[in-house]
């Protein structure tokens, strides 16, 4: 249970004089949900960008299953096994729900340069897409263009796309953002089970969700990790309480 699937070692990124990410080292272990929290502007999005490949670190290493992926771009990292959801839903608007999932499935199958067979008539991909949509509860919305989905449905489609990739690691950037209480609760139950398929690095503002789901928590302020530990350790850490949780927290 303790081997690291994703490993960051001294990852740094500067924007001019601003140290957006400052020597961050963390691990994501098999079977765990590792939550990344921190106040606004702490550098969570930058760090997710550095892991996902949208940004290249100035220093440090990112390893996936022991393989150095620091120099790979976003698409190559995705193929290496990083499955991510975005803070602001990032979908193919004109494609149906099913089409969005098919895109991820065909990318995982690894044959983008296939020019003949129509995707829509590919039975195997179709069956896989149906299974994924069934899991996230979007089956009856399969034929609806993504642009017409409600906010909550878009969030679920983001998750569905990540699942379809069958990644080694999930990077979920505020998956519950803007979801209603009911939606957030069912998504929490879903993520609780998902960690058995691949470990999850979770950025989330909803502290109830973080404290319920996370096996470990890392706290980021001003681009630095000030603490990593279990829920109990983080709750008790005086530096964290001062920097982030505030005085009124238990």
């Amino acid at each position: 249970m303790s081997e690291a699937v994703l490993e960051l070692e001294g990852v740094s990124k500067n924007f001019g004089a601003l140290k957006a990410t400052d020597g961050v080292s963390l691990t994501l272990r098999r079977g765990e949900i590792h939550a990344l929290i921190g106040p606004n502007g702490a550098g969570k999005s930058t760090l997710m960008g550095l892991i996902g490949g949208a940004l290249r670190p100035d220093a440090g290493r990112v390893r996936l299953d022991g393989v150095d992926i620091t120099r790979l771009d976003m698409a190559a990292r995705a193929r290496a096994g990083l499955g991510r959801s975005f803070q602001i839903s990032s979908l193919i608007p004109a494609y149906t729900v099913r089409g969005n999932v098919l895109l991820a499935l065909q990318a995982r199958a690894g044959h983008v340069f296939r020019f003949v067979r129509p995707v829509a008539r590919d039975r195997e991909l179709g069956a896989q897409a149906a299974r994924v949509l069934d899991r996230v509860g979007l089956s009856d919305r399969a034929a609806v263009p993504a642009a017409q989905l409600s906010h909550g449905e878009r969030r679920m489609l983001e998750i569905a796309i990540a699942i379809a990739m069958e990644p080694r690691v999930f990077l979920l950037d505020e998956p519950m953002a803007g979801m209603g209480t009911e939606g957030a609760r069912s998504l929490m139950r879903f993520l609780d089970g998902l960690r058995r398929e691949a470990p999850i690095l979770l950025v989330e503002h909803d502290m109830d969700a973080v404290f319920t789901l996370a096996d470990r928590i890392s706290v980021l302020t001003y681009g630095r990790l000030i603490a990593t530990g279990t829920v109990a350790e983080i709750r008790a850490d005086p530096a964290v309480r001062a920097a982030y949780l505030g005085e009124d927290q238990p």
Partner: peptide
């Protein structure tokens, strides 16, 4: 897909 959202395409592994 790339025309509509290149970032999403890259994020599922399509350069």
């Amino acid at each position: 897909a790339i025309r509509q959202n290149p970032t999403r395409a890259a994020a599922v592994g399509i350069s």
